[in-house]
Design a protein around this nucleic acid. Sequence first.
DNA 1: TGCGTTAAGTGACATTGTCACTGAAGAGTG
DNA 2: CACTCTTCAGTGACAATGTCACTTAACGCA
Lengths: 220, 220
Amino acid sequence: MKGDWTESFLGTRNLPRRVRDKLLHEARVVSYKQGQQVFGPDNIPDSLMFLHAGRIRVSQSSDAGREIVLYRVEAGESCVLTTACMLSEEAYNAEGIAETDVTAITLPKTSFDRLAAEEDSFRGFVFSAYSRRLIDLLRVVDDVAFGRMDVRLAERLLALGEGHSEIQATHQALANELGTAREVVSRILNDFQKRGLILQTRGRITLRNKPQLERLANSA
Amino acid sequence: MKGDWTESFLGTRNLPRRVRDKLLHEARVVSYKQGQQVFGPDNIPDSLMFLHAGRIRVSQSSDAGREIVLYRVEAGESCVLTTACMLSEEAYNAEGIAETDVTAITLPKTSFDRLAAEEDSFRGFVFSAYSRRLIDLLRVVDDVAFGRMDVRLAERLLALGEGHSEIQATHQALANELGTAREVVSRILNDFQKRGLILQTRGRITLRNKPQLERLANSA
DNA sequence: TGCGTTAAGTGACATTGTCACTGAAGAGTG
DNA sequence: CACTCTTCAGTGACAATGTCACTTAACGCA
């Protein structure tokens, strides 16, 4: 049972077996059901988390109830925001929600420190996790500060419809992805529909003209 | 001459003398004049930078020429964005400008790795630098995605006028801080002036009613 | 079938962003 | 000083986005 996910865990990151074994030796396995909150303002973890399976959506929400997705943590990645918070002891109002059922391993801070000291590859893994998130956030800032909403929405639709053309998502959910209001999404989607780019029914969107949507998405 | 800045460098971060000495032994000193670009899309550094004196403004700019300040690096801090970029090999369009004359030390990647392995305090310093930036960026996202422009502008004015009440800044400069357009800043400042909160002359703003500005800034 | 719940539409209005200008203040020069 | 040049700021019209207070539509289910 253990060898099962030992095999796959962090496999893509090329951590040597020795490091993986060390890591697993000190770690605890945790799991969350889809929809559960993994961390949040009232739920600050005291250990470092590495995702084994599933996906976590990290988003930030405003006092007024609006919401924006910052990035997603996929299997094999580490969730550095919790780390960041632990280390800097500052408040933040981001939260992580399990988008699928999730299993992860957590590492107590002391173990984290020791591993980081002893193992170059582990340290590199953590640094590069930080870097990736930093870059993700730069992208979010760029989008929000300078991007047009129709363009961003087109991007999201294409991402969600990759491989197929049917998207299950309410306008509200899309608004929460982009950090805007439902009404804005409705307006833009209605415009898309009038232009023949999509087709809408309750809770579902069909992409009718991907090339055109791509042109729109790339006209940023 | 060396003892001079050895003393002050990273002093506030409580790095032990031994670590400082190691660090300084392998480092090169670099300096920039006020206004010079320290790093940017066409100018990606290949080593890690730690700021000794001065201040660096890190901002991101859009294709359309708009600009937003992400954060500032102060003396004693490290500029992790360059690190992030180095490590993740991804493109980003942020740049760092020396806001004052700047001296910094740079550490080749190999030295960085070794120090991070050998010295807990150095590693902690770097991790916490990352964390702080991550949190800074969360704040920026929050502001841009959910904040009102008048509130954000009031905040900036108060920050710039801390300790005194005279601010030297053009509307364009303030717009670049906040990631908006000059016209928007002009509008809001004119409104502030009508309400008696400030007084404007060319290139200069006088804060006339800080308490009221604070109330506005905190009404986010 | 009717009911309750959730999703989406609507119109009016406020805020912010964009554009194409005009006007005003200071710097330098003869 | 008067004259230019440059930079800074003001303006009005319009577009895009955000907010509010609703209404209408679709679905799930008793």
